[in-house]
């Protein structure tokens, strides 16, 4: 969680993507703008009134990508998002994808804060279905899609990027079942869920982690697994994406140190795109790699950290669309 959203969460508010409100028919909820440091959030939009579109445009021009709704009204907002925004076939697919990407980041953040695994699964499942709708059958040209992926790393941009990449790669590897693709997209959104139990000072640390901090960080696959495994709606592949995405092809990963052939295919897919996204997005301590350098790294690690077949497939997709 970033420092800015953290303050708003103290007031029982959840972040939403500003762009999702640009449709002219706002959700019937109160919308807040975050205050300055230490200040209370201010009311931006009153329930039942028309949304001030020029003011919204100004916010976007000024780089305000996040607004807030009350935790009591988050369900209404999510309903609005799914029914009014995502299902709008008039929007070009790429625009729908961008909205979905922004919205899914909010969804993951809300899920991280809310703490209810059941609702996390429900909401991420709905978004995964929309993602498959938009990307499947190449409604979106991949080259355009890569151009609009978020490059500023946060846990939330990362989750939505990984979800999208997992879906593209899984399909390229021959997974055709819509149900499985939805599961994979959802697994991508959930893969780092366990990080919500890792102390924020470790997650946000800009310098190298100490050995103790690293051990804490390494718990996140297990913590995520434990959180989800009691849910009836989660399948084995998704659980393995959460639990095994840091396992390595050579068996030197964690938490189990299990080698390639014992790791679930979906987890191997997730491992490759997780690393790719981590490399290509900006971090607090370094700029993201350009795609070519990330490709070289993946290629070098094929057969060591990653399944070489999957790396080959991912590199082929990237090169075709660069």
């Amino acid at each position: 969680m970033t420092a800015t959203t953290e303050g708003a969460c103290e007031y029982g508010l959840f972040p939403i993507a500003t762009k999702t409100l640009c449709d002219g028919s706002p959700p019937d909820v109160e919308i807040f703008l975050k205050g300055g440091k230490g200040a209370r959030p201010t009311l931006f939009h009153k329930r039942g009134t028309p949304l001030d579109q020029p003011a919204l445009e100004r916010l976007l021009d000024n780089g305000v990508r996040t607004l807030y709704v009350s935790s009591a009204e988050i369900d209404q907002y999510n309903d609005y998002l799914l029914a009014e925004v995502m299902a709008n076939e008039d929007r070009p697919p790429l625009e729908r994808f961008e909205l979905l990407r922004d919205a899914s980041q909010s969804v993951v953040l809300n899920a991280m804060v809310s703490g209810h695994a059941e609702s996390v699964l429900q909401v991420t499942g709905e978004f995964a279905e929309r993602l498959v709708d938009v990307i499947w059958d190449r409604q979106v040209v991949l080259m355009d899609l890569f151009g609009v992926m978020a490059h500023d790393y946060t846990t939330f941009t990362h989750a939505s990027n990984v979800s999208t990449y997992c879906l593209i790669l899984a399909e390229a590897l021959g997974i055709r079942s819509a149900q499985q693709l939805v599961s994979i997209a959802q697994g991508g959104l959930l893969h780092d869920l366990g990080k919500r139990h890792v102390p924020k000072k470790i997650l946000n640390k800009k310098s190298q982690l100490s050995e103790t901090e690293w051990r804490e960080m390494q718990k996140h696959p297990t913590l995520g697994f434990q959180e989800l495994c009691g849910q009836d709606d989660v399948d084995l592949g998704q659980l393995m994406m959460v639990y095994q995405h840091h396992e390595r092809w050579d068996g030197k990963g964690y938490p189990v140190g299990i080698p390639a052939e014992e790791t679930h295919l979906w987890a191997r897919i997730c491992a490759v795109v997780d690393a790719f996204d981590a490399l290509t997005t900006d971090r607090p301590y370094r700029r993201g790699y350009v795609a070519e350098n990330a490709i070289n790294y993946l290629d070098m690690q094929a057969g060591k950290s990653f399944d070489p077949e999957i790396v080959r497939c991912w590199i082929a997709i990237l090169k075709e669309n660069s």
């Binding site: 297990t222 068996g251 938490p255 189990v256 140190g257 299990i258 080698p259 052939e261 014992e262």
Partner: peptide, 11 residues
């Protein structure tokens, strides 16, 4: 609580 791989038939 945890599980560690020793070989393909031993954890």
């Amino acid at each position: 609580a945890w599980c560690h791989y020793l070989n393909h038939c031993c954890y």
